[in-house]
Amino acid sequence: MKTMRREPNVIPGFGITLGFTTFFLCAIVLLPLSALVLKAAGMDFARFVDVITSPRALASYRLSFGAALVAACVNMVFGFALAWTLVRYDFPGRKFIDAVIDMPFALPTAVSGIALTTVFAGNGWIGQYLEPLGIQVAYTWIGITVALTLIGMPFVVRTVQPAILEVQRDLEDAAETLGAGRFYVFRRIIVPTVLPALLTGFTLAFARAVGEYGSVIFIAGNMPMKTEITPLLIVIRLEEFDYAGAAALGCVMLAISFVMLLAINLIQVWGRRRMMVSR
């Protein structure tokens, strides 16, 4: 295929489309991003380190990462269950549920933020039952985790779903005729087959959750050192007109984004190599 396309191509428009795409990308992505990096680079290094390792910043990393990690783990379990249910079982409303999974993609984050806060507040529909159990959700890290779980859920379900669909029924049948029980088949055949997709979904959900802002700030309570996420800290720095400080924290976030992108790519390469889908 590749060699075919390298041959003289009769399709027109290469120059103009490439030019336009590159221009657009440079203007919208590269230029602003380089502004961020250069702004941070313009700082005194010691001050840079100082800003990004201040106790308040460290606390915010811990919260952002911790909550995102817990949320991604929760999603890995429930997202798998959801994807499995949607693929393998037929029940009334299955198609509806399948469509609704994408809701967090389409729902503005501010809306999910205030809505979750209302539901999980001490007097909210769900919060009122959790409060007596000593579980306070709104304005604690649990609330942040709940919001991040909602944001990440479709990523896990939508990556795992096709993978489960592709587990050939024949594989399970083959394992069964070879003497394996249901749970053994699940553990040794299904989970390993779905694993790359599950990890990809996990990483996507995690990456999205680390940077999430809109849905979190309403439910977080935003107490410095306690329930203040890193993106919020950037906003606060900006409001204090501390552009350099904001840029330094922004750089940290950007670096994390790059690491996540890299991780996703590595997982996919690993998954492909493991399955050796050489078709």
């Binding site: 602003p32 999430e212 950037i234 976030m253 984004s257």
Partner: peptide
Amino acid sequence: LITLIDLPLAVSPVVSGLIYVLLFGLN
């Protein structure tokens, strides 16, 4: 090029706003 196109999906929305402030803001 494809990676660049995907990049905004991975960047925190706050950072997305921040870069424009740094570019066009007063300072």
